[in-house]
Design a protein around this nucleic acid. Structure first.
Lengths: 220, 220
DNA sequence: TCATGCTTGATTCTATCAAATCCGTCAGGT
DNA sequence: ACCTGACGGATTTGATAGAATCAAGCATGA
């Protein structure tokens, strides 16, 4: 069985990512404790974990709030991810086996199914699994942790600013191209594809962020 | 006043970095609670924070241990830091003002004094302040956090594997060259210097790690 | 020799208490 | 009359102590 701390962390992360707890919302221990049905201690731990992921901002004795992201933060975040990607993808190419590729394709098949069916949440879940499996192949746990920690932040941005038209279709195509480059063991091509994909996503989000500021922060 | 959590986190980090708690040592909350004079809750929080920094490894219901680093982990860690450095240093050059440079030189003067006096701890403290001030200038909090989080790990390696001969002197020279490049607003030179410095440090540590395995893990 | 159940030890969670911050109010000064 | 500053109550966080839960180790029996 999973611990209450992990469970409440996942629940809270989901609430933030999906926007039920919008940016700027005050996160009081008592309220969340009652809402999620656990005591204060695991909830506090969850808040610290999510603080490490950049989802919440906490100050001593002053409580925690859902982090508000300025356009500049979006740029910074994606540039960080791009830099780490530039490091990791060549390592993935170096380590990936044919069996690994089969696993990746199986996950990607799930992603394609969900994408074509228009099942957003399922597609996001499969996409995350795809990227997680991919990054694990780099055999660099510390660097992979950076990517994993910032994943929720990226998901939150996508949820908040919406998906561009044809975003999922382009993502499907991106995965196919990446898998082809991996099968060819073409590190340069694979890296270029991943970085380009990241940059495209950033441009997408920045355009929407600058178009509609949407800072409807629920004051606390 | 600082919270007990912050205090115990700093103490515990220091104990691990300086080797009083060697790699592989079991970290029981009861023992540490008695040793550091605080209750279990803030200690638990400290362990989670240090887990996020990569200093300790914890599993649910199975306790925490000081992380053991293989040579490959050292390589991975430094390559991550190098990649992030390649992203951040140009931003530092872009944002650094003459006043900032004066502040950096003041900190560096402290570092030089300590280095020439052979005061290792003071030099390390000043060196950390120098790097922290430098990275803050990049205006990329998420990326800077990656560097800050992994700092303790790097310090632990240095303490554990010892400082190479003339390491401090070379560090002094490295700082001077970097400051010159910053004054000239030469992003390429500054980046090359920082990355080269990081790579040198990695080579230094790897050589020592491979020469003397030194995995004297105190079993628990 | 291997599987199984108990025992021990630790971790994790709940509930309670103390300390710090925030907000509304009020006095004093310009 | 308005603004600035400080004081006090209320709320929230942070810490402590104690109970419940879970994992590992060892003896026992087949």
């Amino acid at each position: 069985m999973t611990t209450a701390e992990d469970a409440v962390t996942a629940q809270l992360r989901r609430l933030i990512v999906e926007g039920a707890l919008p940016p700027g919302a005050k996160l009081t221990v008592a309220a969340l404790s009652a809402r999620l049905g656990v005591s204060a201690t695991p909830l506090r731990a969850a808040l610290r974990l999510l603080e490490g992921e950049g989802l919440v901002e906490a100050h001593a004795h002053r409580g925690a709030r859902v982090r508000v992201l300025a356009p500049q933060d979006i740029r910074n975040l994606y540039r960080l991810r791009g830099a780490v990607l530039g490091l990791l993808v060549p390592d993935v190419v170096r380590h990936v086996s044919d069996a690994d590729l089969d696993v990746l394709e199986a996950i990607d098949a799930r992603f394609q199914m969900a994408a074509r069916a228009g099942d957003g949440p399922a597609a996001m879940e499969a996409n995350q699994a795809f990227h997680a499996a991919l990054l694990a192949l780099a055999r660099n746990p510390d660097a992979a942790a950076v990517m994993a920690r910032s994943w929720a932040l990226v998901e939150a941005l996508r949820f908040r600013l919406g998906f561009g038209p044809g975003r999922l279709a382009r993502s499907v195509e991106s995965h196919r191209a990446l898998l082809a480059a991996l099968r060819a063991r073409d590190a340069a091509a694979a890296t270029a594809l991943m970085v380009a994909s990241s940059d495209n996503a950033m441009a997408d989000l920045l355009e929407r962020a600058l178009a509609g500021p949407v800072p409807r922060a629920k004051a606390g």
